[in-house]
Design a protein around this nucleic acid. Structure first.
Lengths: 233, 233
DNA sequence: CGTTCAATTGATCAGCGTCAAACTAGGTGG
DNA sequence: CCACCTAGTTTGACGCTGATCAATTGAACG
């Protein structure tokens, strides 16, 4: 059984917002919250989807392997679900997941998700909305990847974080640079060089602190595009 | 009003399979079927989603632009929907679409899709299933792109087509090579060279006919992965 | 038979990954 | 408190994959 404030946290998720109270309680009864250390693999691609996962605290990396290569597909931050599609289709995971830091994960048995779905139209609507949002998120990620160079992806990432953090010329990288590199689809070495390339555009890096001297110049290089960068669209 | 066999065609779509007959009729009443010549742009990214599109005949390319670059995101073949997520979220399109050949497209006003969704739980289930499938399709595409070289993507594409077309050592390319190149995320020049590098693996190309002399050798190079290549997963 | 566009081939170039080494920072134990 | 160790970061050199540019061949169609 979950603590009340954890339940409230889950309730605050869009996914559970419109659902019947009784059904929500049912889900919370069978759900459990677990704290994992960093670098723990939570799920493995190819295995049957047994739980819907929700990151409550910390952060999670979704990644995939084939041959002997590995690539990171996305980072998941609180509070959001991951691998919803596999749970809904009662299929195997297409991605693996590991914690990046100490993280609290809410686990809801897939079976219960599906059975509540059967009888709660409000939940259906929320799932549709969540899925559609995730889908559009992946499309945006793919556009970012295919239409931009590494330097441009970094520039746009910095501008997005800058806006989220108040837009006062300062921003903090909340993740290690090597993780950021993976997130941006490049190697740590190339990320480092990309920061170098951005220096003439008013980007000064000091550890995890970044100063944007001239956001205008940076934007001129980044050419941000709402259809890729706007999280609300 | 649609012809009866067009309605049956639409009815055969998983998306409409589980829905109430009356609601289906409602949708078909407001839907209309239109035939487009090749190279007609059907939708443009950034514009509000006004119709759910269903390719009934022909084929459609989904593509996206940013800065002065363009990339193709997916090809859509009969019978399937596209841009469902934008319709459901009542949002703007994230991709543009154009016909590749003479195509018949079924158009259903977005508003009607959303209103039927409000009152038909069976439709909800189908939408969830369709969306989840689309989502997983994009994930697979992204894995294909990030975990494989161009030659490997081509090799796996050939193996998939080979299996679909009977697996008797023969297959036909149903799309122009330059379209195939775009679909595989490479330039036509590189596709041509990729076919060249596959020659030692028993791939003989003659126009749109391809012979696989030794599917075993090809598979050894391609290292197909069900979590990327299996359409049923 | 000529026009047009796709496909191929070659040469060159840019972006990015890999490898190796130096440097830095954060945490631990003496 | 400092020395040390480990892991992250940076820098440089190099090479590979795939894009670009240019020219040629080939095929389809009026």
């Amino acid at each position: 059984m979950l603590r009340i404030d954890d339940q409230n946290l889950a309730r605050s998720l869009r996914l559970f917002a419109g659902m019947d109270d009784g059904n929500f309680d049912d889900l919370m009864r069978v759900a459990y919250l677990q704290t994992f250390p960093p670098q723990i693999q939570l799920i493995t691609e190819g295995e049957p989807a047994d739980f819907l996962h929700i990151v409550v605290e910390g952060s999670v990396e979704l990644f995939a392997r084939s041959n002997d290569r590995e690539t990171t597909m996305a980072l998941v931050h609180p509070v959001s679900t991951f691998i919803l599609a596999a749970v809904l289709k009662d299929a195997v995971y297409l991605m693996s997941a590991r914690t990046l830091e100490k993280s609290r994960i809410l686990l809801i048995p897939a079976e219960n998700i599906r059975s509540v779905m059967e009888r709660d139209p409000g939940f259906d609507k929320a799932i549709i909305s969540e899925l559609a949002t995730c889908y559009r998120g992946v499309i945006k990620a793919q556009k970012d990847l295919k239409l931009r160079s590494g330097v441009e992806r970094l520039a746009n990432y910095l501008l997005r974080q800058h806006a989220r953090q108040g837009g006062n010329g300062q921003l903090k990288l909340h993740i290690e640079k090597r993780i950021l590199a993976a997130r941006l689809g490049m190697t740590p070495e190339n990320l480092s060089r990309a920061f170098g390339t951005l220096k003439p555009y008013g980007v000064a890096v000091n550890g995890s602190n970044v100063q944007l001297t001239s956001p205008t110049d940076l934007a001129a290089l980044a050419k941000p595009n709402p259809l890729i960068d706007d999280p609300a669209i």
